[in-house]
Design a protein around this nucleic acid. Structure first.
Lengths: 235, 235
DNA sequence: ATTATGCTGTGATAATTATCATAAACCCCT
DNA sequence: AGGGGTTTATGATAATTATCACAGCATAAT
């Protein structure tokens, strides 16, 4: 490795980060460098826990890369999945400014890179830079709205429509491909749509028998998207 | 009416407003007076529409008094109720900073008083006063979190548990009494919990037959709260 | 007053979903 | 390579919820 590349690694590269536009667009270069100097980038492998419900919030974090799930465990130990998030759909921020404890757990469902800032530093910064705070608020608001709308959409559908919804979500929104590897188990789909694991499996099998999808374990190929969309809307 | 009381009416009274603490605690007296001078207080009768899904957002509004429902109409014209809000549980703010159009409708389900500020003025103000913006963000975040948590709680319950949940919500959280007038119809309960109107009615009748509640039209008396709580948790 | 409309209420039946049981396939661990 | 656990899978049956049908009642509109 050349000296140059070592130096590049040790200096901050935030100015080129695609996420800059999200809430750093009204932050000056100097300020950005200050933030950058204290940020830590952390990698999580698929399956690893990023934050845990109930834990104290010390950090402000945002996703740079990857895919995560937001979930909550009820008294019986059963999990409910609130949403999935990719970069630009925010994560940690939900309760960050209204609670001192995480109300949801965040878990990587694909290898994920997270940028970590000390929460107190961010808060102090936010108190001094209103434009930054407004951008942050817009992001939070948009992300939360997305979750609420998605939950409403799922709520008004039956089992088949919900499964179709989830498949289309990953196909259209996350992977932008008709063939993809499901990043979650059938049980997690169930936890997300509020139905039982057996019925998720059964419905997927049914879609397979009807030649709407092909299944190879976790690999899904959507063969008849038109039909799947119609099921998602009316089924 | 004496001259004094007329003057009191014509001058701003925001400094005594109980909502001041919400997001005006870091606003100076001078600034507050400026805001106060431009604010309009508006009354809505039970049933009146406050904002409509799809309409352009021109105003920043917050509830001073009353009770409202947040709802969304789907393609078939069927309504879904997202949440109910009283003062301190925010309302208009949800999409205000991330969209130029309302994503939900807000309707008074009890006589409601709303304070209205021009959105551009509030935005400009927010850009200059970071502490105000942070307080605002906390409020939005808290209110939205409440909605998400409530929706999750409902999602994991069956019909009876959901009805019990709604009754306890109004009894414990809104009216803080065991006897109250339901501010919404059976159909609206159904729209909120995602079940049919018939089943809502049937379940209420069942609760009545089991001496858990008494029903006089819209008036509900919770006779056995312990039992209702147990149904809400486990039923 | 009178129709119209919507809300409340109940029953019978159909559709949907959950539960329980069982088994093969897969992954992890040592 | 061989348990031990989890995931996927399928079937039978039970429980839950929706749909349809109908009726009384209240309220609003004309």
């Amino acid at each position: 490795m050349s000296l140059v590349s070592i130096m590049e690694k040790s200096t901050c590269s935030c100015e080129n980060c695609q996420l800059r536009s999200l809430f750093f667009s009204h932050v000056s270069m100097d300020e950005l460098n200050n933030i950058c100097d204290i940020k830590i980038e952390k990698q999580y492998s698929k399956g690893e826990s990023i934050t845990n419900e109930g834990e104290r919030i010390h950090e402000f974090l945002y996703m740079k890369e990857g895919l995560v799930k937001l979930s909550k465990t009820d008294i019986d130990g059963k999990d409910q999945i609130l949403s999935f998030s990719k970069p630009f759909d925010f994560v940690s921020l939900l309760s960050v400014f209204s609670s001192d404890k995480y109300k949801y757990s965040v878990t990587a469902i694909e290898d994920t890179t997270v940028c970590i800032l000390d929460l107190e530093v961010v808060k102090k910064f936010a108190q001094q830079n209103a434009m930054f705070t407004m951008d942050l608020m817009s992001s939070i608001s948009e992300a939360t709205d997305k979750i609420l709308l998605d939950n409403l959409a799922i709520k008004r559908k039956h089992l088949k429509g919900r499964i179709a919804h989830v498949l289309l979500y990953f196909s259209d929104y996350i992977y932008k491909k008709d063939e993809f590897e499901l990043p979650i188990s059938r049980r997690e789909i169930a936890e997300y749509i509020g139905m039982t694991t057996e019925n998720v499996i059964r419905t997927l099998s049914e879609f397979r028998k009807d030649n709407i999808i092909k299944i190879f374990g976790k690999d899904i190929l959507i063969a008849d998207k038109k039909r799947l969309r119609s099921i998602s809307e009316f089924g």
